[in-house]
Design a protein around this nucleic acid. Structure first.
Length: 245
DNA sequence: GCTGTAATAT
DNA sequence: GATATTACAG
């Protein structure tokens, strides 16, 4: 019965970009010029998001907003839902089952660094609307889906998403209700491995910048794509664009 | 506090 | 246009 689990994580592993597709980590990916343009600094990381604890912090923030000025420098980056990331989302939802597929658990299962519950909730909201649109468009497949649904169309919708009532988890292969701790951990680990490469890009620029992960320690962070936008520039996080399938 | 939905903002 | 944020209800 653990077979499904290993398949599941193995499936994710497959989607890792092959080593050839990745820029070697030994290469410095951010030129000083780019770092300038993006106002990136290697210090001053302060992502108090989910899993990052011990961040190298050379400049204490206190000096900046002494007084009552709220820390508006810690703004979240705009998340780009790439097909890969969306697929991960769908996988998480599918494996959680409709019942448990709520933002918090989805977020946990996806295990993407920096992904917030709000990110997931927002995406989930849209995704549900998309599913609704598909159903109302006639059972044939895609009915009312419009041109703007490329992202959602990029990942197949599991059958039981569309027929929440008709499908009872009879026998076939539907997923259990929840995941035991160790299993959950195992999945998180493989998830982390998949996400080693993240992009940091500015909204106004087209060219994303690959942030190389700090050393790939499993429990630690995947990549420090954190904040660093105190200059008011907006940054965009996206997964490494592997080839589509 | 968490979720879902809708409206609104960026 | 895509995503975030906010407000509100359950």
């Amino acid at each position: 019965m653990r077979e499904e689990d290993s398949n599941w994580s193995a499936k994710w592993e497959e989607e890792l970009p092959s080593p050839e597709e990745l820029i070697p980590l030994s290469v410095s990916l951010i030129t000083p010029h780019l770092a300038m343009a993006f106002d990136l600094r290697s210090s001053n990381h302060r992502n108090n998001g989910s899993s990052g604890q011990h961040l190298p912090q050379t400049t204490p923030p206190q000096a900046e907003f002494a007084g009552d000025e709220p820390a508006r420098t810690l703004k979240r980056q705009r998340l780009v839902w790439t097909p890969q990331l969306h697929k991960r989302f769908v996988d998480a939802v599918a494996h959680l089952g409709i019942k448990n597929a709520v933002p918090k658990t989805i977020m946990q299962l996806m295990s993407v660094e920096g992904l917030t519950r709000e990110n997931v909730a927002s995406h989930l909201q849209k995704y549900r609307l998309y599913l609704k649109r598909m159903q109302s468009g006639g059972g044939g497949g895609r009915g009312n889906v419009g041109e703007s649904d490329h992202l959602f169309a990029s990942s197949p919708v599991p059958a039981h998403f569309l027929h929440p009532t008709a499908v009872r988890q009879s026998s076939d292969h539907f997923i259990p209700s929840f995941v035991p701790h160790h299993q959950f951990l195992h999945r998180q680990i493989s998830a982390v491995k998949m996400d080693q490469s993240l992009f940091l890009a500015r909204q106004s620029h087209q060219q994303p910048v690959l942030i190389r992960p700090s050393s790939l320690h499993l429990h630690s962070r995947v990549a420090n794509y954190a904040d660093d936008l105190e200059s008011g520039g907006k940054t965009v996080l996206t997964l490494f664009p592997t080839r589509q399938d």
